[in-house]
Simulated assay, not measured.
Amino acid sequence: MGVELRHLEAFLAAAEEGSISRAARLLRVTQPALSRTLSQLEQQVGATLLRRSAKGVELTAEGMAFRRKATQAVDAFTEAVSSPFDAPRPLRVGHAWAALGRFTTGLIRRWPVEHPEYRLQLRQVDDLYVKLDEAAIDIAVVRGQRPGPRYRHALLYRENRLVAAPAQHELADRLSVTLGDLARYDLVVNTASGTTDHLWDESQRPTVKVEVATVDDWLSNIAAGAGLGITPDPSSQLYQRPEIVYLPLRDAPPVAVYLAWPPSSAHPALRDFLSIVKELVHQ
Protein backbone atom coordinates (compact mmCIF):
# COMPACT_ATOMS: atom_id res chain seq x y z
CA MET A 1 0.00 0.00 0.00
CA GLY A 2 1.39 3.40 -0.99
CA VAL A 3 0.80 6.86 0.41
CA GLU A 4 -2.71 8.09 -0.34
CA LEU A 5 -4.36 11.48 -0.09
CA ARG A 6 -6.04 10.48 3.18
CA HIS A 7 -2.61 9.91 4.76
CA LEU A 8 -1.47 13.41 3.81
CA GLU A 9 -4.71 15.00 5.01
CA ALA A 10 -4.47 13.14 8.32
CA PHE A 11 -0.87 14.26 8.82
CA LEU A 12 -1.59 17.91 7.96
CA ALA A 13 -4.60 17.99 10.29
CA ALA A 14 -2.57 16.56 13.17
CA ALA A 15 0.28 19.01 12.49
CA GLU A 16 -2.08 21.98 12.36
CA GLU A 17 -4.12 21.03 15.43
CA GLY A 18 -1.17 19.79 17.50
CA SER A 19 -3.42 17.02 18.79
CA ILE A 20 -4.56 13.62 17.54
CA SER A 21 -7.94 13.96 19.22
CA ARG A 22 -8.66 17.43 17.78
CA ALA A 23 -7.50 16.32 14.33
CA ALA A 24 -9.78 13.28 14.55
CA ARG A 25 -12.76 15.49 15.35
CA LEU A 26 -11.86 17.79 12.48
CA LEU A 27 -11.69 14.89 10.03
CA ARG A 28 -14.72 13.16 11.60
CA VAL A 29 -12.91 9.89 12.25
CA THR A 30 -12.14 8.05 15.45
CA GLN A 31 -8.89 8.73 17.26
CA PRO A 32 -7.64 5.11 16.88
CA ALA A 33 -8.39 5.21 13.15
CA LEU A 34 -6.43 8.43 12.73
CA SER A 35 -3.52 7.02 14.74
CA ARG A 36 -3.42 3.98 12.46
CA THR A 37 -3.43 6.20 9.37
CA LEU A 38 -0.52 8.24 10.73
CA SER A 39 1.42 5.10 11.62
CA GLN A 40 0.89 3.79 8.08
CA LEU A 41 2.23 7.06 6.67
CA GLU A 42 5.34 6.98 8.86
CA GLN A 43 5.99 3.37 7.82
CA GLN A 44 5.67 4.31 4.15
CA VAL A 45 8.05 7.29 4.34
CA GLY A 46 10.42 5.53 6.73
CA ALA A 47 10.59 8.31 9.29
CA THR A 48 8.96 9.51 12.49
CA LEU A 49 7.00 12.61 11.51
CA LEU A 50 5.16 13.40 14.75
CA ARG A 51 6.41 13.24 18.32
CA ARG A 52 3.64 12.17 20.71
CA SER A 53 3.39 13.38 24.31
CA ALA A 54 0.79 13.94 27.00
CA LYS A 55 0.37 17.50 25.67
CA GLY A 56 -0.36 16.42 22.11
CA VAL A 57 1.89 16.06 19.05
CA GLU A 58 4.62 18.18 17.55
CA LEU A 59 6.56 17.90 14.32
CA THR A 60 9.97 16.29 14.24
CA ALA A 61 12.64 17.72 11.95
CA GLU A 62 11.61 15.15 9.34
CA GLY A 63 7.98 16.09 9.91
CA MET A 64 8.68 19.77 9.26
CA ALA A 65 10.33 18.94 5.94
CA PHE A 66 7.55 16.52 5.02
CA ARG A 67 4.84 19.07 5.89
CA ARG A 68 5.98 21.35 3.09
CA LYS A 69 5.86 18.51 0.56
CA ALA A 70 2.49 17.27 1.84
CA THR A 71 0.98 20.75 1.61
CA GLN A 72 2.18 21.16 -1.95
CA ALA A 73 0.85 17.72 -2.90
CA VAL A 74 -2.58 18.34 -1.39
CA ASP A 75 -2.75 21.80 -2.97
CA ALA A 76 -1.82 20.36 -6.35
CA PHE A 77 -4.44 17.63 -6.05
CA THR A 78 -7.11 20.11 -4.97
CA GLU A 79 -6.30 22.39 -7.87
CA ALA A 80 -6.32 19.51 -10.34
CA VAL A 81 -9.80 18.30 -9.39
CA SER A 82 -11.38 21.66 -8.62
CA SER A 83 -13.94 23.33 -10.84
CA PRO A 84 -12.52 25.95 -13.21
CA PHE A 85 -14.91 28.36 -11.50
CA ASP A 86 -13.39 27.80 -8.04
CA ALA A 87 -11.28 30.66 -6.71
CA PRO A 88 -7.50 30.06 -7.05
CA ARG A 89 -5.43 29.75 -3.90
CA PRO A 90 -4.47 33.16 -2.47
CA LEU A 91 -0.88 34.36 -2.42
CA ARG A 92 0.14 34.24 1.27
CA VAL A 93 2.68 36.88 2.34
CA GLY A 94 4.10 36.44 5.83
CA HIS A 95 5.54 39.19 7.99
CA ALA A 96 6.49 39.55 11.65
CA TRP A 97 5.04 43.06 11.79
CA ALA A 98 4.58 46.16 9.61
CA ALA A 99 4.44 44.16 6.36
CA LEU A 100 6.07 46.41 3.72
CA GLY A 101 5.93 49.53 5.86
CA ARG A 102 5.03 52.64 3.89
CA PHE A 103 4.65 50.57 0.70
CA THR A 104 1.93 48.30 2.11
CA THR A 105 -0.98 50.56 1.21
CA GLY A 106 0.20 50.90 -2.39
CA LEU A 107 0.54 47.12 -2.68
CA ILE A 108 -2.96 46.49 -1.31
CA ARG A 109 -4.46 49.02 -3.74
CA ARG A 110 -2.56 47.86 -6.79
CA TRP A 111 -2.71 44.08 -6.40
CA PRO A 112 -6.45 43.48 -6.99
CA VAL A 113 -6.38 45.78 -10.03
CA GLU A 114 -3.61 43.83 -11.75
CA HIS A 115 -4.35 40.37 -10.34
CA PRO A 116 -8.01 40.06 -9.42
CA GLU A 117 -7.81 36.29 -9.90
CA TYR A 118 -5.42 35.81 -6.93
CA ARG A 119 -6.38 37.15 -3.53
CA LEU A 120 -3.50 38.63 -1.53
CA GLN A 121 -3.26 37.49 2.10
CA LEU A 122 -0.96 39.34 4.50
CA ARG A 123 -0.30 37.04 7.45
CA GLN A 124 1.40 38.21 10.64
CA VAL A 125 3.35 35.24 12.03
CA ASP A 126 6.01 34.83 14.70
CA ASP A 127 8.53 32.54 12.98
CA LEU A 128 8.76 33.38 9.31
CA TYR A 129 11.30 30.75 8.29
CA VAL A 130 9.38 27.94 9.99
CA LYS A 131 6.23 29.00 8.15
CA LEU A 132 8.13 29.12 4.85
CA ASP A 133 9.52 25.62 5.45
CA GLU A 134 6.05 24.34 6.30
CA ALA A 135 4.60 25.98 3.16
CA ALA A 136 2.15 27.85 5.39
CA ILE A 137 3.17 31.04 3.55
CA ASP A 138 4.52 31.52 0.02
CA ILE A 139 6.90 34.43 0.63
CA ALA A 140 8.01 36.48 3.64
CA VAL A 141 8.99 40.06 4.43
CA VAL A 142 12.14 39.78 6.55
CA ARG A 143 13.81 42.58 8.48
CA GLY A 144 17.38 42.47 9.71
CA GLN A 145 19.90 39.86 8.64
CA ARG A 146 20.02 38.63 5.06
CA PRO A 147 18.17 35.32 4.59
CA GLY A 148 20.37 32.24 4.57
CA PRO A 149 21.45 30.26 1.50
CA ARG A 150 18.43 27.94 1.73
CA TYR A 151 16.19 30.76 0.53
CA ARG A 152 16.02 32.99 -2.47
CA HIS A 153 15.82 36.64 -1.54
CA ALA A 154 15.63 40.19 -2.80
CA LEU A 155 16.79 43.29 -0.92
CA LEU A 156 14.02 45.89 -1.17
CA TYR A 157 15.06 48.93 0.86
CA ARG A 158 16.38 50.02 4.26
CA GLU A 159 14.57 51.61 7.20
CA ASN A 160 16.02 54.05 9.70
CA ARG A 161 15.94 53.12 13.38
CA LEU A 162 14.01 54.87 16.12
CA VAL A 163 14.08 54.73 19.89
CA ALA A 164 10.73 54.11 21.58
CA ALA A 165 10.65 55.75 25.01
CA PRO A 166 8.02 56.41 27.67
CA ALA A 167 6.58 59.90 27.21
CA GLN A 168 7.86 60.91 30.67
CA HIS A 169 11.39 59.63 30.10
CA GLU A 170 14.26 62.10 30.47
CA LEU A 171 15.21 61.58 26.82
CA ALA A 172 11.68 62.17 25.52
CA ASP A 173 12.25 65.86 24.71
CA ARG A 174 15.36 65.22 22.61
CA LEU A 175 15.21 65.82 18.85
CA SER A 176 17.36 62.70 18.37
CA VAL A 177 19.61 60.34 20.32
CA THR A 178 22.74 58.28 19.72
CA LEU A 179 23.77 54.77 20.63
CA GLY A 180 26.05 56.23 23.26
CA ASP A 181 23.14 58.06 24.86
CA LEU A 182 21.37 54.75 25.41
CA ALA A 183 24.25 52.84 26.97
CA ARG A 184 23.16 53.52 30.58
CA TYR A 185 19.49 52.64 30.10
CA ASP A 186 17.65 49.32 30.12
CA LEU A 187 16.21 47.82 26.95
CA VAL A 188 13.00 45.98 26.12
CA VAL A 189 13.72 43.53 23.29
CA ASN A 190 11.29 41.63 21.08
CA THR A 191 13.08 38.33 20.53
CA ALA A 192 10.65 37.21 17.81
CA SER A 193 11.03 40.15 15.43
CA GLY A 194 13.50 42.55 17.06
CA THR A 195 16.48 44.04 15.22
CA THR A 196 18.68 45.34 18.05
CA ASP A 197 21.48 42.76 17.91
CA HIS A 198 25.07 43.87 17.25
CA LEU A 199 24.46 47.61 17.61
CA TRP A 200 26.95 48.04 20.47
CA ASP A 201 30.32 46.73 21.50
CA GLU A 202 30.01 44.37 24.45
CA SER A 203 31.61 46.92 26.78
CA GLN A 204 28.98 49.56 25.94
CA ARG A 205 25.90 47.40 25.45
CA PRO A 206 22.83 48.41 27.50
CA THR A 207 21.23 45.85 29.79
CA VAL A 208 18.36 43.89 28.29
CA LYS A 209 15.89 44.07 31.16
CA VAL A 210 12.83 42.54 29.50
CA GLU A 211 12.49 40.08 26.61
CA VAL A 212 9.10 39.65 24.93
CA ALA A 213 7.77 37.76 21.92
CA THR A 214 5.06 40.08 20.58
CA VAL A 215 4.80 43.72 19.54
CA ASP A 216 1.94 44.32 22.00
CA ASP A 217 4.05 43.13 24.94
CA TRP A 218 6.97 45.21 23.70
CA LEU A 219 4.82 48.35 23.60
CA SER A 220 3.21 47.66 26.97
CA ASN A 221 6.55 47.24 28.74
CA ILE A 222 7.95 50.43 27.21
CA ALA A 223 4.81 52.38 28.13
CA ALA A 224 5.12 51.10 31.71
CA GLY A 225 8.70 52.34 31.97
CA ALA A 226 10.44 48.95 31.95
CA GLY A 227 12.98 50.16 29.41
CA LEU A 228 13.59 51.66 25.98
CA GLY A 229 12.99 49.95 22.65
CA ILE A 230 14.74 50.19 19.31
CA THR A 231 12.71 49.68 16.15
CA PRO A 232 12.59 50.51 12.43
CA ASP A 233 10.70 53.69 11.54
CA PRO A 234 7.32 52.16 10.48
CA SER A 235 6.58 51.72 14.19
CA SER A 236 6.01 55.44 14.63
CA GLN A 237 3.05 55.28 12.22
CA LEU A 238 1.72 51.82 13.04
CA TYR A 239 1.97 51.80 16.82
CA GLN A 240 1.13 55.26 18.06
CA ARG A 241 0.36 55.48 21.78
CA PRO A 242 0.08 58.66 23.82
CA GLU A 243 2.39 57.20 26.48
CA ILE A 244 5.20 56.43 23.98
CA VAL A 245 7.37 58.78 21.92
CA TYR A 246 9.68 57.88 19.04
CA LEU A 247 13.10 59.53 18.64
CA PRO A 248 15.45 59.23 15.63
CA LEU A 249 18.53 57.13 16.42
CA ARG A 250 20.92 59.03 14.24
CA ASP A 251 24.12 56.94 14.36
CA ALA A 252 22.64 53.43 14.08
CA PRO A 253 22.84 51.47 10.81
CA PRO A 254 19.52 51.16 8.97
CA VAL A 255 17.52 47.93 8.92
CA ALA A 256 17.50 46.00 5.66
CA VAL A 257 14.12 44.74 4.42
CA TYR A 258 14.12 41.60 2.27
CA LEU A 259 11.67 39.35 0.53
CA ALA A 260 12.54 35.69 1.12
CA TRP A 261 11.06 32.55 -0.39
CA PRO A 262 12.16 28.91 -0.73
CA PRO A 263 13.17 27.65 -4.18
CA SER A 264 10.21 25.27 -4.01
CA SER A 265 7.64 28.10 -3.86
CA ALA A 266 5.49 27.54 -6.92
CA HIS A 267 2.57 29.94 -6.62
CA PRO A 268 1.74 31.18 -10.13
CA ALA A 269 1.53 34.81 -8.96
CA LEU A 270 4.85 34.86 -7.10
CA ARG A 271 6.91 36.31 -9.95
CA ASP A 272 4.37 39.09 -10.54
CA PHE A 273 4.29 39.87 -6.82
CA LEU A 274 8.06 40.36 -6.83
CA SER A 275 7.85 42.67 -9.83
CA ILE A 276 5.08 44.82 -8.36
CA VAL A 277 6.83 45.20 -5.00
CA LYS A 278 10.11 46.18 -6.66
CA GLU A 279 8.31 48.76 -8.80
CA LEU A 280 6.57 50.25 -5.76
CA VAL A 281 9.86 50.54 -3.88
CA HIS A 282 11.78 52.05 -6.78
CA GLN A 283 9.07 54.58 -7.53
Results as ranks from 00 to 15, higher is better:
6 R>M: 11
7 H>T: 07
11 F>C: 06
11 F>A: 05
12 L>D: 04
13 A>M: 06
14 A>G: 03
15 A>C: 04
19 S>Y: 07
21 S>W: 09
25 R>M: 09
27 L>Y: 00
30 T>P: 02
31 Q>N: 06
32 P>V: 05
35 S>T: 05
35 S>Y: 05
41 L>R: 03
42 E>K: 01
42 E>S: 05
45 V>T: 11
50 L>A: 08
52 R>P: 06
52 R>I: 08
54 A>N: 04
54 A>M: 00
55 K>P: 01
56 G>Q: 06
61 A>D: 11
66 F>N: 00
69 K>I: 11
71 T>P: 00
72 Q>C: 00
73 A>F: 04
76 A>V: 04
78 T>S: 10
79 E>H: 08
79 E>K: 08
79 E>T: 12
80 A>W: 09
82 S>K: 06
82 S>M: 09
85 F>Y: 12
88 P>L: 08
91 L>M: 05
92 R>A: 09
93 V>E: 06
108 I>Q: 15
112 P>I: 12
113 V>K: 14
114 E>M: 13
117 E>A: 15
121 Q>H: 15
122 L>M: 07
124 Q>A: 13
126 D>V: 15
130 V>M: 14
133 D>A: 15
134 E>H: 12
136 A>K: 09
137 I>T: 01
138 D>A: 06
140 A>T: 07
141 V>S: 06
143 R>K: 09
148 G>S: 02
154 A>P: 07
155 L>S: 13
163 V>A: 03
164 A>W: 01
165 A>S: 06
166 P>L: 04
166 P>R: 05
167 A>E: 15
174 R>L: 03
175 L>M: 14
176 S>Q: 13
176 S>N: 09
178 T>D: 01
179 L>F: 03
184 R>P: 03
184 R>G: 07
193 S>C: 09
200 W>Q: 00
201 D>A: 14
205 R>Q: 15
206 P>L: 10
207 T>C: 12
210 V>I: 14
211 E>M: 13
212 V>L: 09
213 A>V: 13
213 A>Q: 13
215 V>H: 14
219 L>A: 11
226 A>N: 15
226 A>M: 13
228 L>R: 04
229 G>P: 05
233 D>V: 12
235 S>I: 12
240 Q>M: 13
242 P>H: 14
243 E>N: 07
251 D>S: 12
252 A>C: 09
254 P>Y: 06
262 P>Q: 08
263 P>W: 03
266 A>Y: 04
276 I>N: 01
278 K>T: 10
279 E>P: 00
279 E>G: 03
281 V>M: 01
282 H>G: 00
